[in-house]
Computed example of a mutant assay.
Amino acid sequence: MTQAIFIETAKAEIAAVDDKKRRLNVSGVLRILGVSRNGYYAFKSRKPSERQKHKEFIEDKIIDIYDESHKNYGAPKITQKLHEIGEEISEKTVGNYMRELGIKAQYIKPYTATTINSDFSSELKNILDQDFSPATPDAVWCTDITYIWTYDGFVYLTSVMDLYSRKIISWVLSLTLEAKWVVQAINKAKSIRNVDEALIIHSDRGIQYTCEDYRKVTKDVVASYSKKAYPWDNACIESFHALIKREWLNRYKILDYKHAYKLVFEYIETFFNTIRIHSHCGYLSPNEYENKYYSEKIKNAC
Rank of each mutant, 00 (worst) to 15 (best):
T2W: 00
Q3H: 11
F6R: 12
I7W: 03
E8S: 11
E8R: 11
T9D: 13
T9P: 00
K20A: 13
L24N: 12
G28V: 08
L30K: 06
R31W: 04
L33P: 03
G34V: 11
S36H: 03
R37W: 04
N38Q: 14
Y41L: 05
F43K: 14
K47P: 09
P48N: 13
H54N: 15
H54C: 10
K55Q: 14
F57E: 15
E59M: 12
I62T: 00
I62Y: 00
I63G: 03
I63E: 10
I65L: 14
I65D: 03
Y66Q: 02
K71G: 05
Y73I: 08
I78G: 03
H83W: 06
E87N: 05
K92M: 12
K92N: 14
E100D: 14
L101E: 05
G102P: 00
G102W: 04
I108L: 14
K109I: 10
N117Q: 14
N117R: 13
S118M: 00
S121E: 14
S121C: 09
E123A: 11
L124I: 06
K125A: 11
L128S: 05
D129N: 15
Q130H: 02
T136W: 00
D144R: 01
I145F: 04
T146V: 10
T146N: 09
T150E: 10
F154E: 13
V155E: 10
L157R: 08
M161S: 03
M161K: 10
L163N: 07
Y164E: 05
Y164S: 06
Y164G: 05
S165R: 01
K167V: 03
I168A: 06
S170W: 00
W171F: 13
A179K: 05
K180G: 03
K180E: 13
V182H: 00
Q184T: 12
Q184H: 09
N187H: 08
N187E: 15
V195R: 02
V195E: 02
D196H: 13
I201R: 00
H202M: 03
D204H: 04
R205T: 04
G206D: 09
Y209G: 01
Y209S: 02
Y209L: 02
C211L: 04
C211Y: 02
V217Y: 00
V217Q: 01
K219A: 14
A223S: 15
Y225M: 10
S226Y: 01
K227T: 01
A229V: 10
W232P: 00
W232K: 06
A235V: 05
C236Q: 12
C236R: 10
I237F: 01
I237L: 01
S239A: 14
F240H: 05
K245W: 06
R246W: 04
E247R: 04
Y252F: 15
I254K: 07
A260F: 08
K262Y: 09
F265S: 10
E266H: 13
E266T: 15
I268L: 04
E269D: 15
E269Y: 07
T270L: 13
N273W: 07
R276L: 04
H278P: 02
H278Q: 14
H278G: 05
S279D: 04
S279Y: 03
H280W: 07
S285P: 10
P286S: 11
N287F: 11
N287I: 13
Y289H: 12
K292W: 07
Y294M: 08
N300D: 11
